[in-house]
Design a protein around this nucleic acid. Structure first.
Lengths: 328, 328
DNA sequence: GGACAAATTTGAAACGTTTTTCCGGACCGG
DNA sequence: CCGGTCCGGAAAAACGTTTCAAATTTGTCC
């Protein structure tokens, strides 16, 4: 039942295998009459093309790889959803790999992708080292950087302006009258955290008081609240490097009897779904996550399907302020 | 640079292609000396096996498919993370497809998976119709049902006891002294929502007052709060079919000045990360989501790699009550 | 009606592995 | 020292497509 090949279809339709292949791949090259015959045979026999054979002979596959840093983070989930949408529409399969913050795992995953002969790879690199990616590209696998600006103009990238986002956040806080502002962040080895701080300080005009946590989770946010409270003098406002931190912080402050936004204003980053749903809804910097995934995939597939006309682009989206209760 | 094949390696190592293949696939069949030579050649030439050629000849691939209903839902995200972990460990690639609740899209995705000749498929079916899956299995593609009990004993499935979970939830609420309880749910066409209600009513001893929403999102939860408030008499407790609904409801109630848990106790379902982080932390029914993904993948790969000894299993996990502030 | 061009279709040779059969030599006991 | 066994490695035949040149049919124009 399973082993219906192109030859069986050919026999059934009374044509040669080559013609069947043409019907499958260049329908316009074959006369309507035979095309109909072949399509009927395909349907009757339940023929399904053998992707591997096709890939082997044609030299390229219908799959792309997606390598993210943390599939559990709603940010990446949204990106992934966007990627899957576009890829699926164009008949591409998406091979998902999660580097889980481990450089070694990322490396292993890229090897698997190379073995699968993916057409291209979408990746949010876990560090700045471009060497692994250059190796992929040397293999003829297109690479598009996601949420990371390209380091050179010979490749595509899709990112969001984190410096601008940081500026917007702090400008908004100052607009509500905040004088003293604290920046609560994840590891400052992460480019996003760094850039957001840089933007924030540019708007602030001088260095910010920084609380750096080891992770960017609700739990870490709650710990940050304790730290903030134990340090004594409360700031007028807090800028968190992402919403998970902000939600945890919000909970920690509320518990200690600190009222948000009355005592302390609070702004997050990412505008994940839960930002609007928390007890005090969270002002945040919205990133076009879904769009990020979609555009990155479109760029990648354009590079694959139209290598001749493809022009590499480094796209930078602008984030957007979403004002809610936590800063009102 | 890219096109180093097994022959090139063979030439370099001074052996035949067949021997290289043996080193790659059955290292124990080849003498240590030649194995070392071949491995050196592989390293020097940067050889990467051509997965498609391998699949074509060997008749089976190193990929599995994962078809989920909504990649945006933290529940599925956790499952996906578990799947990816196990698959990646065993050298399998995961092709992700998101049916987004659409039967047609699910069907298209399954076709793509069939073309890719995946070894097996993990699927949370979007409806009860087993026909599509039987077709896959007729093709020799193993299928494991995720978060859905198998309808017949000739296949594997991994699910969580939703009836038991519903019972646990309502028993807990009654234990805190609640007399009147409302069930806030998503569409009752969804098996999970139905089962949870069934369990809840079994514990309650009579039909529950039900508020059925069109979606299972925070927004829908907030609308449910409005509905609840407009209907006048507040219950002692509310059981929500998932945490997203519960978080939205919590926000809606809090806004209206209703105190949780003092005026109304509240329990959710899933125990997503944000349940612990909300302003009033949420009591919930925890499902072993990550485990669900892991075990399902282990079953699938066992079925693929040891077809002889494999015994189909229908695994049913028990959910677990996590008590937090919203019911204290 | 014939000649030439265009449009279709054919047939066979790849693509890079795995697998199976087969062969030469090393090793063993008698 | 001989015959039989084993073991490691070689050679060649698949696997199911796509592709390309060649062959055939169809169509056009005088």
């Amino acid at each position: 039942m399973s082993d219906v090949g192109i030859k069986d279809v050919a026999a059934r339709a009374g044509v040669s295998p080559g013609t069947v292949s043409n019907v499958l791949n260049r329908p316009e090259k074959v006369s309507p009459a035979t095309r109909a015959k072949v399509e009927a045979a395909v349907r009757e026999l339940g023929f399904v093309r053998h992707g591997s054979a096709s890939t082997l002979r044609a030299g390229h596959s219908k799959t792309i790889g997606l390598s993210v840093i943390d599939i559990g983070n709603p940010f990446f989930t949204d990106v992934t959803a966007g990627v899957e949408e576009v890829a699926s529409d164009l008949g591409y399969a998406v091979i998902l790999s999660n580097s889980a913050g481990s450089r070694a795992k990322e490396e292993r995953n890229l090897l698997v992708l190379a073995e699968q002969r993916v057409r291209g790879v979408l990746i949010t690199p876990s560090d700045e080292d471009p060497e692994r990616l250059d190796r992929l590209r040397a293999r003829g696998i297109a690479v598009v950087l996601v949420d990371h600006p390209a380091h050179c103009p010979d490749q595509c990238s899709v990112a969001v302006n984190d410096i601008g986002g940081g500026m917007t956040a702090v400008r908004h806080l100052m607009g509500t009258g905040a004088k003293s502002i604290v920046y609560v962040t994840g590891p400052l080895t992460i480019r996003q955290c760094l850039d957001r701080r840089a933007g924030a300080e540019r708007a602030y005009g001088r260095p910010l008081r920084v609380i750096e946590m080891g992770a960017m989770t609700p739990r870490a946010g709650q710990q940050a609240a304790e730290k903030l409270l134990s340090e004594g003098d409360l700031p007028d406002a807090v800028f968190c490097a992402n919403d998970l931190l902000a939600l945890g912080l919000l909970r920690g402050l509320t518990h200690a009897g600190v009222r948000v936004p009355h005592d302390v204003a609070l702004i997050g980053y990412d505008d994940i779904d839960f930002a609007a749903a928390s007890a005090v809804s969270l002002t945040s910097i919205r990133q076009p996550t879904h769009q990020l995934g979609r555009v990155a995939t479109e760029l990648l597939l354009d590079e694959c399907d139209n290598p001749a006309t493809h022009a590499h682009q480094q796209i930078m989206f602008q984030p957007e302020l979403v004002v809610r209760e936590s800063t009102r």
